[in-house]
Design a protein around this nucleic acid. Structure first.
Lengths: 203, 203
DNA sequence: GGGTACATGTAATCAGTTACATGATTTA
DNA sequence: TAAATCATGTAACTGATTACATGTACCC
């Protein structure tokens, strides 16, 4: 029953089954969408396939409803819990993957026409500002920006997960603001003018 | 000659061929390793496969050496340049993928023994500090931390690409410091004591 | 000249993604 | 009761990752 070679997806599912109790794939989907899914996409098909795989190696069990939707409900087994804990205690040095298509574009923006950098930066700035605003509306984030002492509720842990994402978005906004300003300055010095909506940038 | 449905990998290769001129897959590999590869992994097998694919749809051409290593050299075609420029001008709203295994662990740390949070945070703090230090040693980053005006050299663009990564690592360090402090406080209040190497944390 | 690191490539596997397809529940 | 949306699942595909395999250049 090799618990080796489990993927991040495996631990995601194991973790959710451990914390939330028995779940249908749809339950998993919703939990993920509300938390990690904001910055680490797990297409729903994955969350239907992965529990099946876990069941096949004994880390979960599967039961199916007789009537109605005939949903499949998955439950973590002792072996599953054990695998999860073992993973939690194992130091993890896999590097963060930061896959940002906007960054890829700006990286090659010198291969395009002169206003390319400016166009990309403006777009990305909008994207990241919107995302940051969306995070801020999620009430789950509201309170504990300072260090929270004492016992931690589930909600606090969820917000804990998102805190990093918020920090990333803040960095991203700052970064794209910088790039935008640079691009404007460059355009100005090259063409002797300033884009019309320059004022909007600083707002 | 549908230039549709090209992946990030495709544009990475097109962009490098456009900027660097004809390249072997190994050339691509080295360029990537020195830049984007720091935070977005592209296994070398990809960089051997992708140019072939591009050649098959007319966005690059392939020539092979007669003698010696019989390397394959790829050159971007006009169609390839066109596809690249079209992509640069197309607004891109695909979200950033932030796949951080450490974050996944901390997200589920309440499923492990009590010191789990502390252990994970310490590990991740070390990882991200090391990465940040490594970035700082790369001379390519040294100078222009402020906004750089005037014309931009290739080196500046490279550093531009990495600047975001540096900001991310800074955020990560701050985040994991926070988590570490939280964990220490929690352990202390729960067990009435403080881990021995607490002092090292603040250093 | 033997070892080591660099360089080049392919093949097989596997995970992630897209697309398809349909049933169940709610709401107008 | 029809439409819309929520929910459930599978199949096919494609791209990413791992593993294998080998050759070349350099260094001791």
């Amino acid at each position: 029953m090799s618990t080796d070679q489990l993927s991040s997806t495996s631990y995601l599912v194991l973790g959710l089954l451990a914390r939330e109790g028995p779940c249908t794939p749809y339950d998993l989907k919703r939990h993920v969408a509300a938390t990690l899914g904001h910055f680490w996409s797990f297409p729903h098909a994955l969350l239907y396939a992965e529990p099946t795989r876990l069941a096949s190696i004994g880390l979960a069990t599967e039961t199916q409803e007789e009537r109605g939707r005939r949903r499949r409900v998955f439950t973590i087994t002792d072996a599953g819990s054990h695998a999860l804990r073992a993973w939690l205690e194992r130091p993890n040095r896999e590097p963060t993957e930061l896959r940002d298509p906007g960054l890829l574009q700006i990286f090659f923006s010198d291969m395009g026409p002169s206003q390319t950098q400016w166009t990309i930066a403006r777009e990305q700035l909008a994207v990241h500002r919107a995302k940051l605003a969306a995070y801020m509306k999620d009430e789950v984030l509201g309170s504990g920006t300072g260090s929270a002492f004492g016992q931690r509720t589930l909600e606090q842990w969820l917000s804990h997960g998102l805190r990093m994402a918020v920090m990333y978005e803040r960095s991203a906004v700052a970064f794209w603001e910088d790039v935008t300003v640079d691009a404007v300055a460059e355009e100005a010095s090259a063409a002797g003018g300033v884009p019309e909506d320059y004022g909007k940038l600083i707002a």
